[in-house]
Measured scan of single mutants.
Amino acid sequence: GSPGIQSFLPPGWEMRIAPNGRPFFIDHNTKTTTWEDPRLK
């Protein structure tokens, strides 16, 4: 199987799917959430 997208996120980050189907990202380091992919910064 191919590695999940989770493995490509920075340490402490998690990806979830919102009720509307959009992915969002949780930064457990700062306890914040964002719509922006942290890998694109």
Rank of each mutant, 00 (worst) to 15 (best):
G1P: 13
G1W: 13
G1H: 13
G1F: 12
P3D: 14
P3W: 05
P3K: 14
P3N: 14
P3R: 10
G4K: 13
G4D: 15
G4E: 15
G4Q: 13
I5L: 12
I5S: 14
I5E: 15
I5V: 12
Q6V: 13
Q6Y: 01
Q6E: 15
S7D: 15
S7K: 11
S7G: 15
S7P: 13
F8M: 09
L9I: 04
L9P: 01
L9N: 01
P10T: 02
P10F: 05
P11T: 07
G12F: 05
G12V: 01
G12R: 04
W13G: 00
W13Y: 04
W13V: 03
W13L: 01
E14R: 01
E14K: 02
M15Y: 04
M15V: 10
M15N: 00
R16G: 08
R16F: 09
R16H: 08
R16K: 11
I17H: 08
I17L: 11
I17G: 01
A18P: 02
A18Y: 05
P19W: 07
P19C: 15
P19N: 09
N20D: 14
N20R: 02
N20G: 09
N20A: 02
N20F: 02
N20H: 05
G21N: 05
R22Y: 11
R22F: 11
R22Q: 14
R22V: 12
R22L: 13
P23A: 11
P23I: 13
P23F: 10
P23K: 10
P23Y: 12
P23L: 09
F24A: 07
F25D: 01
I26V: 10
I26Y: 14
I26M: 06
D27G: 00
D27S: 02
H28R: 04
H28K: 06
H28Y: 09
H28T: 10
H28Q: 07
N29D: 06
N29V: 11
N29G: 06
N29A: 09
T30F: 05
T30D: 04
T30H: 07
T30A: 07
K31G: 15
K31I: 05
K31A: 11
K31T: 07
T32N: 08
T32L: 08
T32G: 04
T32K: 10
T32M: 10
T32W: 06
T32E: 08
T33L: 13
T33I: 15
T34G: 04
W35E: 06
W35N: 06
W35I: 05
W35Q: 05
W35V: 05
E36M: 08
E36N: 09
E36L: 11
E36D: 13
E36T: 08
D37A: 03
D37N: 01
D37H: 04
D37S: 02
P38L: 01
P38A: 01
R39K: 03
K41L: 13
K41M: 14
